[in-house]
Amino acid sequence: MSESRAPFVKICGLKTARDVDTAVEAGADAVGFVFAPGSPRTVDAGAARELAARVPGGVLTVGVFRGQSVDEVRRLTEESGVRGVQLHGDEGPEYYDALRAEGRTLLRATALHVARCGEFGEDLLLIDAPDPGSGKPWNWASQEFTAPAGHWLLAGGLNPGNVREAVETTGAWGVDVSSGVESSRGVKSPDLIRAFVEAARG
Score class of each variant (00 low, 15 high):
residue 155 A to H: 00
residue 153 L to I: 00
residue 148 P to E: 07
residue 130 P to V: 02
residue 172 A to E: 01
residue 195 A to C: 10
residue 166 A to K: 00
residue 141 A to W: 03
residue 195 A to L: 08
residue 165 E to I: 03
residue 123 D to Y: 06
residue 178 S to R: 14
residue 175 V to F: 05
residue 133 G to R: 06
residue 112 L to W: 09
residue 110 T to P: 05
residue 131 D to W: 09
residue 108 R to E: 09
residue 144 E to C: 03
residue 116 R to P: 06
residue 193 I to L: 11
residue 173 W to M: 04
residue 194 R to Y: 09
residue 130 P to W: 03
residue 148 P to G: 07
residue 190 P to Q: 13
residue 124 L to F: 08
residue 122 E to R: 12
residue 126 L to T: 03
residue 171 G to A: 11
residue 155 A to V: 03
residue 157 G to S: 03
residue 145 F to I: 04
residue 135 G to H: 07
residue 107 L to N: 00
residue 131 D to E: 14
residue 176 D to A: 10
residue 199 A to N: 06
residue 125 L to V: 09
residue 130 P to H: 00
residue 191 D to F: 10
residue 193 I to S: 07
residue 154 L to G: 01
residue 121 G to S: 12
residue 177 V to G: 06
residue 146 T to V: 15
residue 111 A to L: 06
residue 132 P to S: 01
residue 146 T to A: 15
residue 157 G to K: 01
residue 159 N to E: 11
residue 144 E to L: 08
residue 123 D to R: 08
residue 122 E to D: 10
residue 191 D to M: 12
residue 160 P to S: 10
residue 186 G to C: 12
residue 143 Q to V: 13
residue 113 H to Q: 14
residue 198 E to S: 15
residue 107 L to G: 03
residue 156 G to T: 01
residue 106 L to Q: 04
residue 195 A to V: 10
residue 125 L to F: 07
residue 145 F to R: 03
residue 174 G to Y: 03
residue 169 T to A: 05
residue 123 D to A: 11
residue 182 E to T: 13
residue 176 D to M: 12
residue 147 A to I: 08
residue 134 S to P: 02
residue 149 A to M: 14
residue 164 R to I: 01
residue 197 V to C: 11
residue 178 S to V: 12
residue 166 A to Y: 00
residue 184 S to Y: 09
residue 183 S to R: 15
residue 152 W to G: 04
residue 184 S to F: 09
residue 106 L to T: 02
residue 174 G to F: 02
residue 126 L to M: 12
residue 129 A to K: 04
residue 147 A to E: 05
residue 122 E to P: 09
residue 138 W to F: 07
residue 166 A to T: 00
residue 113 H to D: 13
residue 185 R to M: 14
residue 110 T to E: 02
residue 126 L to W: 05
residue 188 K to L: 11
residue 199 A to E: 07
residue 125 L to W: 05
residue 175 V to P: 03
residue 106 L to V: 07
residue 121 G to L: 10
residue 118 G to R: 13
residue 128 D to I: 02
residue 164 R to N: 09
residue 111 A to I: 05
residue 150 G to K: 08
residue 121 G to W: 08
residue 173 W to D: 02
residue 160 P to T: 06
residue 130 P to M: 03
